[in-house]
Simulated scan of single mutants.
Amino acid sequence: MSMPSPYALGATLYMPATRGDLLDVVFRDKLPSLRSLVICLEDAVAEIDVATALANLSRLLSAIDQRGGRLEEGPLLFVRPRDAKMAEILNEWSLIKHVDGFVVPKLTLGNLLSWQKAVTNPELCLMPTLETPDVFSPESMTNLAEALQETLHDRIIALRIGGNDLLGGLGLRRNPVTTLYSTPMSYVISMLSGVMGSHGFALTAPVFEQLSTPRLLEQELELDVAHGLVGKTAIHPDQIDIIHDKLRVSLDDLNSARQIVQEKTTAVFKHNDAMCEPATHYKWATNILERAKWHGVQQPCERHGREPFQVQARVADFGC
């Protein structure tokens, strides 16, 4: 299995497996800037529509096969099964080879073994979602991180933070005029960045559910990046380019990173009035270079801010 870079994920859009235009998105006839797509068989599909959704997914994979496979430059493609039992079935589909991996909903230490047994295809990478009450416990997350290291570490591209589910468990919903970092999720994201990051796992940022405040989305993305998060779930296609723009690296950071990773560099040096110490900053520098590889470098803006984007489709057409 060739593991994709977590920085290749960029903006990740969830779409219900019942949609009829999935093939257009996979082959970039629609949403050409999308970097990663999750076809959802879980929350975005009602129980009565599961059979229809599975049949539609099967037709999609057959259509991809008939075209000779996916485009090399197309979006990464994942499927979110409803549960481990469904994942076990999909794992055996011959045409599942056209999928990069599965998003694992509601992963816990208690159901880890069932997922490990269900997804035996070594070509499928995994993106577990952290969205259950035990996520609030550093001890539980440490135990989960250690278990993942022992079992699935080499197959996990990134861990996804399920912000809405976690807030919902507290009976909360974010204030539409503040970022997620003004809620208890600030603690959760900081804690997960420390616990999971120190165990070698990349993390992606929760969805931003407001559609008419792009400037607030930009503010949240700046905080996402400051916490080391590598991508973000998009709730609507109009968020894709905003997310990708904010994942670009600054020219100053890029130049600092390049100097830090040089083989022949001093133990400590000054760059842009900041101390650079390769022994401690090397991992940061390699992450900056990887981010720049996938998202590029920030360009000076000719105007300040953006006009609010216009929603061209119902949010219900997409899933998160």
Rank of each mutant, 00 (worst) to 15 (best):
L31S: 03
K264T: 10
T178H: 15
F201A: 03
G171F: 12
G197E: 11
L172G: 02
G101I: 05
H271D: 03
T12S: 15
P16A: 09
I48R: 15
V195P: 04
R67Q: 11
E277V: 05
Q239H: 02
F78W: 01
A84Y: 07
E139I: 11
H281R: 08
L124K: 08
G168K: 04
M191A: 10
D43W: 09
T179Y: 12
A226D: 08
K283I: 05
V315M: 15
S186F: 13
P16H: 11
T129M: 08
V50Q: 14
Y7D: 12
L170E: 13
S190T: 08
Q312H: 10
A234H: 01
S5Q: 07
F136L: 11
L152N: 02
M191L: 06
S256R: 11
L95Y: 00
R80H: 08
L95F: 01
L167S: 09
S212R: 11
I156E: 03
G162K: 00
L251R: 00
P32C: 02
P278L: 00
P133I: 13
T52D: 04
L170M: 14
V261F: 04
P184Y: 01
L113Q: 15
D43E: 06
L130Y: 05
A44M: 04
T18Y: 07
F309M: 03
P122C: 00
N287A: 03
L170Q: 05
R215G: 13
N272I: 10
V311F: 12
D29N: 09
R28I: 14
L54P: 01
E220K: 11
Q149S: 07
S62F: 14
Y282S: 07
I64P: 00
G74Y: 00
G68H: 02
P105S: 14
D224G: 05
P81Q: 04
E218S: 02
L159K: 04
I189E: 07
E307S: 12
L126I: 07
V26G: 08
M15Q: 15
K85I: 14
L217Y: 02
L180G: 03
R174F: 04
M196Y: 14
G20N: 09
L217C: 03
V261M: 06
Y282K: 10
S5C: 04
F208N: 09
P206Y: 05
R160K: 09
D245Y: 07
G171C: 05
R70H: 05
R303A: 11
F102I: 12
V230R: 10
F27Y: 15
S36H: 15
S190W: 06
M127R: 11
L211T: 05
G305L: 12
P300F: 01
S140W: 10
I288Y: 00
E302P: 03
E209V: 10
L112I: 05
E42Y: 08
L254T: 13
A145K: 11
G163L: 12
V103D: 03
G20F: 07
L109Q: 09
F208W: 03
D21I: 13
V225A: 10
L34F: 13
A145L: 08
R67A: 08
H271V: 00
